[in-house]
């Protein structure tokens, strides 16, 4: 049904890029995702996910200005493309439709 396949980690990274809106780059993404998911992350994982996303056309990137806190190196800032946004929405749709069809949502069990 879907034209583009998105891995679970890629999806999270893509969402994080969207959330950080314009301030998304390697380190900030890593910390945000680590905070939200509680996972142990390595920079190379984030970078490879970003590369794959860029190859799939879901994010685009621009080079920022060099800053002292980065040892005089530029950062690569990521933005979600229209195609990325649509993909995220599609995923959301699919999930929602499944949740709606769920006759007995699990949360009941927790209350007891």
């Amino acid at each position: 049904m879907k034209r583009t396949y998105l891995g679970e980690f890629e999806e999270i990274v893509l969402l994080a890029v969207a959330v950080l809106g314009g301030q998304a780059y390697g380190v900030s993404l890593m910390h945000d995702i680590a905070k939200q998911t509680g996972r142990e992350l390595r920079l190379n994982q984030v970078h490879s996910a970003l590369q794959r996303l860029e190859e799939k056309g879901m994010v685009k990137s621009t080079l920022g200005e060099p800053t002292a806190e980065r040892g005089g190196k530029r950062k690569r800032l990521f933005l979600v493309t229209a195609h990325g946004q649509r993909s995220l929405q599609e995923i959301q749709q699919v999930r929602l439709s499944f949740w709606e069809r769920l006759a007995n949502p699990f949360k009941l069990g927790i209350n007891l």
């Binding site: 780059y25 390697g26 380190v27 890593m30 920079l43 970078h47 080079l63 060099p66 806190e69 980065r70 040892g71 190196k73 530029r74 950062k75 690569r76």
Partner: peptide, 14 residues
């Protein structure tokens, strides 16, 4: 290399 080195540096300082 530039972007990666920058990210690593930032993380290192932190």
């Amino acid at each position: 290399v530039e972007v990666i080195e920058g990210d690593l540096y930032e993380e290192f300082i932190r």
